[in-house]
Deep mutational scan, measured.
Amino acid sequence: QVNQQQLQQLMDMGFTREHAMEALLNTSTMEQATEYLLTHP
C-alpha cells in the first residue's frame, strides 16, 4: 500500500502512476522515491 499523497506528488512531478507506485513500494522516503525514479527511467 502506498501513501496516496506521496503518489500524487510524484505524479504532479510528471511521473506516471505506475512508475511512481513502483518507486514508493521500493523505497521508504519521498527523497528515495524521487531518486529511484530519476535513476530508473
Rank of each mutant, 00 (worst) to 15 (best):
Q4W: 00
T27H: 11
Q9C: 00
Q8N: 14
L25G: 13
A33N: 01
A20W: 00
Y36L: 09
T16A: 13
Q5V: 11
A33S: 04
L25Q: 15
L25C: 10
P41F: 15
N26S: 13
E35K: 14
L7E: 05
N26T: 14
Q8W: 05
M13Q: 15
Q8L: 06
H19K: 14
E22H: 12
F15W: 10
M13T: 14
E18V: 09
Q1F: 04
F15T: 13
T39R: 13
V2D: 12
L25R: 14
M11S: 07
M30E: 09
Q32L: 07
E35L: 07
L10S: 01
V2F: 07
Q8H: 10
M21W: 08
Q5W: 01
L10A: 05
Q4K: 14
L38P: 10
Q5G: 12
L37F: 06
E18I: 03
Q6P: 03
L25S: 15
N26H: 12
H19G: 14
M30P: 08
A23D: 01
E22W: 10
Y36C: 10
R17C: 09
D12H: 10
Y36S: 10
L25I: 11
E31F: 02
R17N: 14
F15R: 07
L38I: 08
T16L: 08
M30V: 12
Q1W: 05
L25A: 11
Q32D: 08
H40P: 14
M30S: 08
L7W: 00
Q4M: 08
L10F: 11
A23E: 02
T39K: 15
M11H: 02
L10C: 00
N26A: 10
L10V: 08
V2R: 10
Q8D: 07
Y36G: 07
T39V: 05
Q8K: 13
E18P: 08
L24T: 06
E35P: 01
Y36I: 05
L24A: 07
S28I: 03
M30K: 10
Q9H: 08
M21F: 04
S28E: 15
N3P: 03
Y36Q: 13
T34G: 12
L38M: 15
